[in-house]
Design a protein around this nucleic acid. Structure first.
Length: 307
DNA sequence: TTCCAGGGTAACG
DNA sequence: CGTTACCATGGA
């Protein structure tokens, strides 16, 4: 199968050429949106993070310009360097959404009064992904019904207590905790994180499903349809429509995933349309009829107006 | 104190 | 199936 982007091995890592309608700086600007993020470090337009390969952290540093991404390998790899680089390329490709052809979205957005402003302002932005399923689900669960700065604080506490890390240049780079690690925790052990008891239960239950192989990305992708995958997720206690669609959007990359009940979406639409109240769900249903097939990108671009 | 934040469950028609 | 209480936690 032909990719819309290309991979080249170079001396210190990889050089990726992104697809059309991809802007490195737009996506890095998105990554910079919160100073509270704890899973990567941004310096100027360079991004450094640890990713999990064979359950061990490998450090990469990404830089780039326009459609180009340079991925520098900071961890020394003795054997199987090409295999490691291939896995890194796959991760970065998923993270930066390099596979998607976004032209249909931009055509649709240019004609849409709600989307056209954001689509123009952030042209080249992708739905930045969360490739690891447990990280995506956990981040969704953590973020339920709390404001974003607090959600970041909760994530940081969890990550610093249970996440594996790599040290480089005197700094510590954490990975999100492995599902296997959280699967073995108890509600009591998770005291002091400021997570509600319910959320702790949801996190542990979800971790156990993933660690036990009962919930996987491939099972969700092969569910047959987005609706089927959504059903698989919402059958899990603690994962409702919002969390399911959030994960389908950012991890499984369904372009038609749609967390319609999202407060951020409501606030963005309120702002764009100059309403004096949040839109009713029925209004969002009507507005989003124009977004069909691209709801996830519509939401992501609207969120970008806020954060 | 009240209201809100990138919701979810359970009970009830 | 759609509605409606009720829940949980910190911040403004």
């Amino acid at each position: 199968m032909k990719r819309a982007w290309s991979i080249k091995e170079v001396e210190d890592g990889l050089q990726l050429q992104g697809p059309p309608d991809f802007s490195y700086s737009q996506n890095v600007n998105y990554l910079s949106r919160s100073a509270l993020e704890c899973l990567y470090e941004i310096e100027g337009e360079r991004v450094i993070r640890a990713i999990r390969l064979a359950n061990k952290p490998v450090l990469i540093e990404i830089s780039g310009k326009e459609r180009l991404l340079n991925v520098k390998l900071l961890t020394s790899v003795a054997a199987g360097r090409s295999d490691v680089l291939a896995e890194i390329a796959a991760y970065v490709g998923e993270w930066f959404d390099l596979e998607r052809d976004m032209r249909p979205f931009y055509e649709l957005a240019a004609r849409d009064p709600v989307l056209q402003g954001a689509a123009k302002a952030y042209a080249g932005l992708r739905v930045m992904g969360i490739p690891e399923l447990f990280e995506a689900l956990a981040w969704g669960i953590i973020g339920q019904q709390i404001n974003l700065p607090f959600a970041y604080r909760l994530k940081r506490r969890l990550v610093e207590r249970y996440g594996d890390a790599a040290v480089h240049g005197g700094r510590t780079y954490y990975m999100f905790p492995a599902a296997e690690k959280v699967a073995d925790l108890t509600v009591g052990a998770m005291d002091g994180l400021q997570l509600t008891v319910k959320k702790r239960e949801y996190l542990i239950d979800t971790a156990q499903l993933i660690a036990g192989g009962k919930l996987t990305k491939s099972a969700l992708l092969e569910a047959g349809s987005m609706r089927q995958a959504e059903r698989m997720l919402t059958e899990i206690r603690g994962i409702g429509p919002w969390t399911a669609n959030y994960v389908l959007m950012r991890c499984l990359r369904f372009a038609d995933a749609f967390p319609i009940d999202d407060v951020g979406l409501q606030l963005a639409v309120k702002s764009v349309l100059g309403l004096d109240r949040k839109p009713f769900k029925s209004e969002l249903v009507d507005l989003s009829a124009h977004w069909r097939g691209w709801e996830a990108y519509a939401v992501f671009y609207l969120w970008r107006l806020l954060y």
